[in-house]
Design a binder for these strands. Structure first.
Length: 429
RNA sequence: GCGAGCGUAGCCAAGUGGUUAAGGCAGUGGAUUGUGGUUCCACCAUCGGGGGUUCGAUUCCCCUCGUUCGCCCCA
């Protein structure tokens, strides 16, 4: 194509789809507000070192997926691949911890990872995330998980599954890692090539390999849950009890490993069927070391991020229809009437009503047809006669009933009209 | 980054190495120069882009771009 297209892995979200995005954003905003979370907006790019230190140099995200470039001042800049590092940076930079107690934050916006695009995976993708900073309490883990579950439910998605694991502390993981490497080394020749390569570099990742034979070996591997120190074990037990008390079903998955280094203790994923390889719609966990790692005070935290593209893919399959009908569609013909129509539309908007004005100047049958297709509840008709005596025809598009009114009278009795609109709207839905 | 499939109008979609590339939906104009949702008529594509093979390619080959599926990884 000679035409310029959107870059690979990016896409336009057109008005028909934006309805779904707005629905999700609205539900999320309401719910997070109810739970005491406050929105945080951080820059879309950050210094590269933030992600290198925060996410971990050895991770795939940092190693091969970042959009990194030098700006004109020779600073190394990276388009954020996830939201937590920036949120924590802001938390530290603005000393939000000094406000005492717990900070509940949420964010939404685009993230960037240089990957091979697939359905549900873009290079520019969007997340909504929450971060609960300043609490080690297992109730914090349960709270954020419950919020994610509630959000999915409120969006009409109830076929999710929650996969849960504990990664313990760094010390727990170190002990486990040694045991795991020892076990896997005995089966080295039976592992798939990818997993063999990861044996020293990132053995935990071998656990969630999709290779059938490797999976068999992984099933029989020692479980991290048996390597948790007493405190870690108690924390995880408590989280599970709390989830049960909230009636949130989950499945323990000792093979669940998250791809970012900062996770500790609780790790979880919400999975949706029918998303193919991109089944994870929400991932998160506890990250007790990250704030200190980035130079802040020792602070416990837990959070998650939802992938909006994946979520909306499912919502669209469910054929949820969101309609926001216009109140009026205004058609007019003739110089006088056309000018008056413009004024009338303006006045109606001032009254809080929604109006779309036909600009075509074409014959009334055409304009009426467009009025019908616009989905408006009523049509305002101003022809040459109405232009002369400053009147209008108010036509209800469902019933076809039509009345003649003075323009002044119409605006002055707008409350009556609003009541009629309300009635028409409930009839239409 | 690796492997495989696909790419005909805004959308869905038939089709062929050879004079005018089906059809449907949507859109635009008209039948209907002051009244919509029905109906009828008309219009609406050089077959993703570039190169090659050929007398001739939308059809065959190569490259490229995009997309889909799997791997990797993740939301």
């Amino acid at each position: 194509m000679g035409l310029i297209q959107a870059s690979r892995g990016t896409r336009d979200i057109l008005p028909d789809e934006v309805i779904y995005w707005q629905r999700v954003e609205e539900k999320a905003r309401d719910l997070l507000h109810q739970a005491g979370y406050r929105e945080l907006r951080t820059p879309i790019f950050e210094q590269t070192t933030l992600f290198e230190r925060g996410i971990g140099e050895a991770t795939d995200v940092v190693g091969k997926e970042m959009y990194t470039f030098s700006d004109r001042g020779d600073r190394s800049i990276t388009l954020r691949p996830e939201g937590t590092a920036g949120a924590v940076r802001a938390y530290i930079e603005h000393k939000l911890h000094a406000q005492g107690g717990v900070q509940r934050l949420w964010y939404t916006g685009p993230m960037f990872r240089y990957e091979r695009p697939q359905a549900g995976r873009q290079r520019q993708f969007h997340q909504i995330g929450v971060e609960l900073l300043g609490s080690l309490d297992p109730r914090a883990d349960a709270e954020v998980i419950a919020i994610a579950a509630t959000l999915l439910n409120r969006l009409g998605i109830d076929n999710w599954t929650l996969s849960l694991n504990s990664l313990g502390t760094a010390a727990d993981r170190q002990r486990y890692r040694e045991a795991l490497v020892s076990y896997l080394s005995d089966h080295q020749q039976d592992l798939d090539p990818d997993s063999q390569a990861r044996l020293q570099r990132n053995p935990l990742r071998i656990l969630d390999s999709k290779d059938p034979q490797t999976q068999v070996i992984a099933q029989a591997a020692p479980s991290i849950l048996d390597y948790l120190a007493e405190e870690s074990r108690q924390h995880f037990e408590r989280v599970q009890q709390l989830l049960q008390s909230l009636g949130i079903p989950y499945q323990l998955n000792p093979c669940l490993v998250r791809g970012l280094d900062y996770y500790t203790h609780t790790a979880f994923e919400f999975l949706l069927p029918d998303l193919g390889s991109q089944a994870t719609v929400c991932g998160g966990g506890r990250y007790d070391g990250l704030v200190a790692e980035l130079g802040g005070p020792d602070t416990s935290a837990v959070g998650w991020a939802i992938g909006l593209e994946r979520l909306i893919l499912i919502l669209q399959r469910g054929k949820l229809t969101c309609t926001s009908a216009l109140d009026f569609y205004c058609v007019s013909r003739g110089v006088e009437a056309e000018a008056q129509a413009l004024q009338l539309c303006h006045a109606l908007r001032t009254c809080g009503l929604s109006v779309e004005m036909d600009l075509s100047g074409s014959a009334f049958p055409k304009q009426l047809k467009r009025a019908d297709r616009s989905g408006a509840l009523a049509c305002l008709i101003l022809g040459e006669t109405e232009g002369r005596d400053r009147s209008l025809q108010l036509k209800w598009l469902h019933s076809g009933e039509q009345q003649s009114l003075g323009q002044q009278e119409f605006i002055q009795n707008i409350d009556q009209v609003k009541a009629q609109l309300g009635a028409a709207r409930s009839l239409a839905s």
